[in-house]
Design a protein around this nucleic acid. Structure first.
Lengths: 233, 233
DNA sequence: GTCATAGTTATCGTATACGATTTCGTACTC
DNA sequence: GAGTACGAAATCGTATACGATAACTATGAC
């Protein structure tokens, strides 16, 4: 747990192919922040670094482009996707919808052991707040939701969740995360969510709560940059 | 209108590149049914057909793989994605969630002109039922929802809708569509949806109705293959 | 001093080529 | 006759090479 790169299902191409290798390597560097937004991804350079030719690197970059982690411009090159506030809004809004559904679908399948694990993670998050460790907090936050989703019955939805997370990870270093007080609320909402799941609340209620949990972060950000609410109801 | 291939935002790579050309061509053939599920996509063959080399074709195929239209197996090759009932369930369930959200987000932005257009399309669909023209019916069905979504404020969500549609298009020729009576209900639900939008119903109500509209088709299919309901509440 | 223009460099896009892997067919054995 | 082992054909995966395009730089005109 507490890893950074969330792998979307390795469609096709088993590990071992140079293409896959390049994909994994570049993705990791983006998600962990080695390549920051705006960073220029030169095919030949990456190819040399990884000891492969440009063809598989190009393929990897295009794949990352499809996931939104990279921006590609014809005859110009690729750069790590940036921190456009509009994109942030789109991503968070989409994620709130997807995560809401994922939570509702997973809820009936979550057993007491998983709940306990989630609670332990949440306790650690609370510690992080006291010791002010935002990096670890963010990682644990992902762990928390990973526990909830680990038995999600629809892999498509799970994949969309992971894409959203990776998208956010690529802009993690930016200003977006830092909204005063939001983290504290977040921990409380986690506990509330667990109680809803434990009490077998109906799917609608759980979905709404989970959705609100994500969109509240977006609202907090928007409020800070003095704009109106755009959360999904 | 009434076109088949719904283009997901042309990320990067302007038109004119061989890669893009290959992507568009192969995608169209899949969506329109020239390449049926299971069809073997041999890189060299496609390259020759299109008058390009294998490299851009390979890139195009990988892109289609990322969208779920194609299945790729290392050192074996690519085939058009099939009609696995489980996949159908996953796709429909995801689509019901995404379309629900898309409709709710779009509703406040739909003007009376668009409503009128949608109604006209729906009337045509009713005609198709009488003259039994399922192909046209399906195309019009997409048109109907396209009208609703044309001002969707979140392009990410719109893109997910299109991906789902294309995914379904690739299995259109299969048995899934044919559930007795469902088409008639569908037309009625369209009208109900339009009335909700006209009357400025709240976002939750609209979202729920739109979601139900899609998941009802899934339920009908599942009922026919004598299984229980798995629709999202 | 600033702007336009031509030449240079960096980088991409794609073709071709070849080694690697799988699949299929055939012959051989039990 | 069925199964196995070998060999040939098909196809993929990647390296290399080169033409095309855009970015950069320096030179000259006003």
């Amino acid at each position: 747990m507490t890893e950074t790169a969330v792998g979307s299902v390795a469609l096709g191409e088993k590990t071992g192919s140079k293409s896959e290798q390049a994909y994994t390597a570049v993705k990791a560097r983006i998600v962990e922040g080695t390549y920051t937004p705006g960073y220029r991804l030169v095919l030949a350079k990456i190819a040399e670094d990884l000891g492969v030719s440009v063809v598989p690197v190009r393929e990897a970059i295009r794949r990352l482009e499809a996931e939104g982690l990279v921006k590609f411009e014809r005859n110009v090159g690729a750069t790590v996707s940036g921190i456009d506030p509009t994109e942030y809004l789109y991503t968070m809004q989409t994620l709130s919808i997807i995560e809401g559904a994922a939570t509702a679908l997973s809820a009936p399948l979550i057993d007491s052991v998983a709940i306990a694990r989630a609670r332990a993670v949440n306790a650690e998050m609370r510690d992080c707040l006291e010791h002010f460790d935002p990096v670890r907090f963010t990682a644990l936050n992902q762990d928390f939701h990973s526990v909830l989703f680990e038995h999600c019955p629809n892999p498509h939805i799970l994949d969309l969740v992971h894409r959203g997370w990776n998208r956010l990870a690529s802009i993690r270093a930016s200003t977006f995360r830092f909204v005063p007080g939001r983290a504290q609320e977040s921990v409380k909402e986690h506990e509330a969510l667990l109680q809803l799941i434990e009490s077998n609340a109906d799917a609608n209620t759980i979905e709404h709560a989970a959705r609100r949990h994500r969109s509240a972060t977006l609202d907090a950000y928007l409020a800070q940059s003095n704009a109106g609410s755009v959360s999904a109801h």
